[in-house]
Design a protein around this nucleic acid. Structure first.
Lengths: 121, 121
DNA sequence: TCTTTATGCCTACACACGTAGTCTAAAGAG
DNA sequence: CTCTTTAGACTACGTGTGTAGGCATAAAGA
């Protein structure tokens, strides 16, 4: 469950909207990645080989769906961050965020609410 | 400020303990990466070229120090995770952690204390 | 039915990375 | 002073990745 950067960008576009054709994907990605249509097709072919996406024929072309799920990547990336930089513990991560002033008052309120809801369970 | 995986492993070893010689690093990394001494030397040479580490002659050999700091990587990695998966907001990240049952009672208590200390400021 | 166009498939290619061997020079041993 | 060892420098090479061009084929238009 590992994907090079370029392919991940394509998968993310599919998470945002699926299915899409190679051409639609090229346009959807144009803002961040100025890729030729052929480039996107190559990436899609590699992703098919990995099983990261699937496709179905739609007339003359293919439509692509994500297979690998966003949630899986999210979980994996979060765990990796925790393990490599925070000794696998959540509190140091949150402490770091606070020291970077990444926490707004709204964030703090939302966090309190989350904490309250867990206590109740 | 980007580093391939293998080089990052070397830098992490230097964060744990510096300075170290190429040979010491090879041994320190042996548990996780069974690299030959020459491999570690190649990695160190590339890291010197990037400016990620520096070295000083110690008799016949070199001792290596980290230049790029752990804190920088930590901040960068955290921001990247937040931006790519949680819309840049902290609360959804914490919500995800809780849904994964990654939060112990101790974590929750520590979080509450952090929140309290911020409110006071 | 013949030609044009669009779509997929295959091929290419430079550069980065992981992994290491060989060559060279300097330090220490005799 | 010569020989041996050891540490560094240079070279190498297969594979993965980013990026795309060219060829073949099927659909659409004339």
């Amino acid at each position: 469950m590992e994907l090079p950067d370029a392919e991940l960008a394509v998968l993310e576009a599919l998470w945002r909207d699926a299915p899409q054709s190679a051409e639609q994907l090229t346009m959807a990605l144009a803002a961040t990645r100025a890729w030729k249509l052929n480039t996107v097709k190559t990436l899609l072919a590699r992703m098919l080989a990995r099983g990261a996406v699937r496709h179905e024929k739609d007339g003359r072309r293919f439509l692509y769906w994500p297979v690998w799920e966003r949630r899986t990547f999210l979980t994996q990336a979060t765990r990796q961050l925790l393990d490599s930089f925070f000794g696998g513990k959540v509190t140091p991560l949150v402490a770091h965020l606070s020291s970077q002033r990444k926490l707004s008052a709204a964030d703090r309120r939302a966090l309190r609410e989350l904490l309250d809801s867990w206590e109740q369970r």
